[in-house]
Design a protein around this nucleic acid. Structure first.
Length: 457
DNA sequence: CCTGACTCG
DNA sequence: CATCCGAGTCAGG
């Protein structure tokens, strides 16, 4: 049992004989066994403090989470799988009809031949892969002149979700526990985030009708328990406000304003009350793009405007949030001089590519220099929060178990009777995990499944 | 920008 | 026949 735990992540231990030992004891053994491995990986980055204070104790927390696992409604997934299988078959027939022949829709090469050669649809000449024109979702969405594009798009959605989630998840339910046990890997990402494999429970769908159906299948498995989800809201931009000291951005967070509305008001120079939905969604894209060190080119594509226009929005944005502009400008330079970037807790990411002459490679590294302090600091803070949650639950004798971490979200399964106390505790642990110049805001929700949740604290 | 899984060839 | 690998695509943050 627990073979999946032995396969990767923190689960390096074969658990066969110790199946009846309790989670804490197993976690302790994992800590002992994993220490050298983690030290080898993390020690290179001179993480002494971070390693002792965060990464080491976190090993035990992750091991407990892996052992706890999550419950899924297998019957619901089976029923959904039946429906999707039938739908995919119908769509397949439709697509063959429109194409005038049968082909492998899942082969980008064959699809490209049908769309751009046989049917003569216009490819997006700006989007090419190594082998030819791209057929990705963006491109297909632009091919509205032929019914087939929308059909293929829908076919892709259905088959992707069916094979990756609906069919795969039930097979990973452990026979002993009746639950799914992922592996959280602590030492693969460049930024300090966790990753999750076998299965990856950090990319469970949420968008779209079908995505929501899948998320609904993640349930509280124990009697009289509920799922509790706690989410940092806009943690990366809050960290950016902290790092840069941008007064305008800090003010928005101190007043707990609607960030996207406030940014739109600044960009377009209108009162907050006069922000229209398109203006808000435009500002939202800029806000999301900043942490990625987004290029005008990408921003333009996201917003559906010209590169010049996107450039004007970006300039306007940085006029109103000047310290952010300085940050985006200066961080790559400073990183180049240092050879690395650092997160709030001192985690280092070397970026030797900043000195490369090849501009594509260097630009990518420059975006990493912008992004990593935010993404990595958010990861640091979440890790501190998880340690705090574990200790606090223990101290208060609460029965809640952490089950998942999805970068800015923590999911627990908790006895319903303890929900109010647990919700408040998790909220406070996360909010107080690290003190910034702006508050850390946490949204806590609870419910019987991972989709339908109500505010809980 | 950071990931992991699936499919094809 | 089994297995590996790169490429393409797309799920999440």
């Amino acid at each position: 049992m627990f073979e999946h735990l032995a396969a990767g992540g923190t689960g390096q231990l074969g658990l066969g004989e110790e199946a009846d030992a309790d989670a804490a004891a197993l976690a302790a053994r994992q800590v002992a066994l994993l220490k050298p491995r983690l030290e080898a990986r993390l020690g290179e980055l001179e993480l002494e403090g971070l390693f002792a204070e965060v990464e080491m104790p976190l090993v035990g927390v992750l091991a407990e989470m892996e052992l706890t696992g999550v419950a899924v409604d297998v019957d619901a997934l089976a029923a959904l799988g039946e429906r999707l299988g039938a739908r995919a078959k119908e769509m397949e027939a439709d697509i063959y009809g429109l194409a005038g022949e049968e082909f492998n829709i899942g082969s980008p090469k064959q699809l490209r031949q049908i769309l751009f050669e046989k049917l003569g649809l216009p490819p997006d000449r700006t989007k090419r892969t190594k082998t030819g024109y791209s057929t990705d979702a963006d491109v297909l969405a632009g091919l509205s002149e032929h019914e087939i594009a929308a059909k293929v798009l829908e076919y892709r959605e259905v088959t992707k979700l069916k094979s990756t989630y609906v069919d795969a998840l039930p097979r990973l339910v452990n026979a002993e526990t009746g639950r799914i046990h992922t592996s959280f890997n602590q030492a693969v990402t460049a930024t300090g985030r966790l990753s999750s494999t076998n299965p990856n429970l950090q990319n469970i769908p949420i968008r779209g009708e079908l995505g929501m159906e899948i998320r609904r299948a993640f349930v509280a498995g124990l009697p009289d328990h509920v799922l509790l989800s706690a989410d940092y809201s806009q943690i990366e931009l809050r960290i950016l406000a902290h790092i840069t000291g941008d007064e305008n951005l800090i003010e928005i967070f101190l007043r707990d304003e609607d960030l996207h509305r406030a940014a739109a008001s600044e960009i377009f120079g209108v009162g907050p009350g006069d922000v229209t939905p398109p203006m808000r969604s435009c500002a939202k894209m800029v806000n999301f793009g900043i942490p990625y060190g987004i290029s005008d080119f990408r921003l333009a594509r996201e917003m559906g405007v010209s590169v010049e226009e996107a450039g004007r929005y970006r300039e306007r944005y940085f006029e109103r949030f000047p310290r952010l502009g300085e940050y985006v400008e200066e961080m790559p330079k400073a990183a180049r001089a240092q050879g690395y970037v650092k997160t709030l807790l001192g985690r280092r990411r070397p970026l030797p590519e900043l000195r490369t002459r090849a501009s594509g490679v260097r630009r990518a590294a420059e975006r990493m220099a912008v992004n990593t302090p935010m993404q990595g600091s958010a990861a640091d803070i979440m890790k501190l929060a998880m340690l705090r949650v574990r200790d606090s639950l223990r101290k208060r004798g609460l029965g809640a178990k952490m089950t998942l971490q999805v970068h800015d979200e923590l999911v627990l399964e908790t006895p319903r009777a303890e929900l109010p106390e647990t919700a408040a505790l998790v909220r406070d642990c996360m909010a107080e995990a690290y003190e910034l110049r702006v508050p850390l805001k946490v949204a806590v929700k609870a419910g019987g499944n991972w989709l339908e949740m109500e505010p809980a604290a």
